[in-house]
């Protein structure tokens, strides 16, 4: 009896530990500029396989990639581009198996869409020298380690965060803004740092409060974090990761404004979503496909920015943004694109 009980306690603790575990989709900082090229049509369809950590409809990181592939397929035609995907690959071991499977099946490009997959890609890519791999958000192509068929892609999400901060500072009545994130790393942290910088640059009296929940999936905690932010005075919020859906609904209930990230989140709560910075991976994908068709299978980093249109501000048509604020936002996007405005985030 006692032995069984002890075993049970251990099992329970292990489960708690699992529940507490975060599954990071983090990104290092961008360092290189993307190559400019367009996709050249090939005779047979270009085949892409995607392995991603969360659901294809997460309104966040994974969905942004699926939307981009769908867009690209519409543009090129189904006979020119085929894609398949494995979703909910939170478990890196499962993801590695899927990556290897796709490689065996001869896909032209395999996207490991999550920075937790780096080690797997580095391990698998050398076994399939004729297949191109790409992973992100990341900037390491493993070229220095002798791997030549891996691309890396990332996004300068500090730029989108900056614009959101500028608008947020203008719209906030309490002059307190809240930023929510899963872990202090990756594109989520870049967004939040950009948000802070943009808000401060617009109005030095604005305070930005930041909360990290340490989980990409804990909707409960993220909602409560939003509630805490609002209770402590914030009336404009932003947040990243697929766990923000509950936070958006809390903001809606309490009448706070929301800025979306990664995907267009206006559908969650059209009344309060001002705008979203949307990752348009088609830019990086087109570049990559052009390289692959030209015989290069890796070794380059693609960074999406306002300048190359890989990063886009999507305004919610249901939210009436004052004309002067919209004009300021447009000016900020243009400034970030031509380099006259710097976010100052490294």
């Amino acid at each position: 009896m006692k032995v069984r009980y002890t075993f049970f306690i251990i099992a329970l603790v292990a489960m708690l530990a699992l529940a507490a575990c975060a599954t990071p989709t983090a990104a290092p900082q961008p360092t290189a500029a993307p190559a400019q090229a367009t996709a050249a049509p090939a005779g047979k369809p270009f085949r892409i396989a995607v392995v991603m950590p969360s659901a294809a409809n997460d309104l966040a990181f994974s969905q942004s990639m699926i939307d981009a592939l769908g867009e690209l397929q519409k543009e090129m035609g189904k006979d020119k581009l085929e894609f398949v995907y494995s979703e909910n690959m939170f478990n890196v071991t499962d993801a590695a198996t899927a990556i290897r499977d796709y490689a065996t099946k001869g896909y032209d490009l395999i996207l490991a869409h999550g920075s937790q997959y780096g080690a797997s890609v580095q391990d698998i890519a050398p076994d399939f020298p004729n297949t191109a791999f790409a992973w992100g958000t990341a900037v390491d192509t493993f070229k220095e380690k002798g791997v030549n068929n891996v691309f890396a892609y990332t996004v300068a999400s500090d730029q989108g965060g900056y614009v959101e901060g500028v608008i947020g500072a203008k719209l906030s009545k309490s002059k307190v803004l809240g930023a929510l994130g899963p872990i202090p790393a990756g594109d989520g942290q870049l967004t939040i740092k950009g948000f802070e910088a943009g808000a401060q640059a617009t109005d030095p009296n604005v305070k930005v409060q930041t909360t990290f929940t340490n989980s990409f999936s804990d909707v409960a905690l993220m909602s409560q974090a939003a509630q805490t932010q609002i209770a402590s005075g914030a009336d404009v919020l932003t947040g990243t990761s697929q766990s923000v859906v509950g936070a958006v609904s809390v903001a809606k209930d309490k009448g706070a404004l929301w800025f979306g990230n990664q995907s267009d989140q206006a559908s969650l709560a059209p009344e309060i979503v001002v705008a979203s910075q949307v990752y348009d991976w088609t830019v990086a994908l087109k570049d990559m496909m052009a390289k692959i068709n030209g015989g290069t299978r890796g070794g380059e980093v693609f960074i999406m920015t306002f300048a190359n249109k890989g990063l886009v501000m999507v305004y919610n048509p249901a939210y009436k943004l004052p004309d002067d604020v919209k004009a300021l936002a447009d000016k900020t996007v243009a400034g970030l694109a031509d380099g006259s405005i710097q976010t100052g985030i490294k």
Partner: peptide, 27 residues
């Protein structure tokens, strides 16, 4: 109480470990 009172939304694995914590709380 989560999906129609607290978050007013549903998402995959909405509870993220709450049920196990509930079991632990009984002990």
């Amino acid at each position: 109480s989560l999906s129609i009172a607290m978050f007013n939304i549903f998402q995959q694995n909405l509870t993220s470990g709450m049920g196990f914590i509930a079991v632990a709380l009984v002990y």
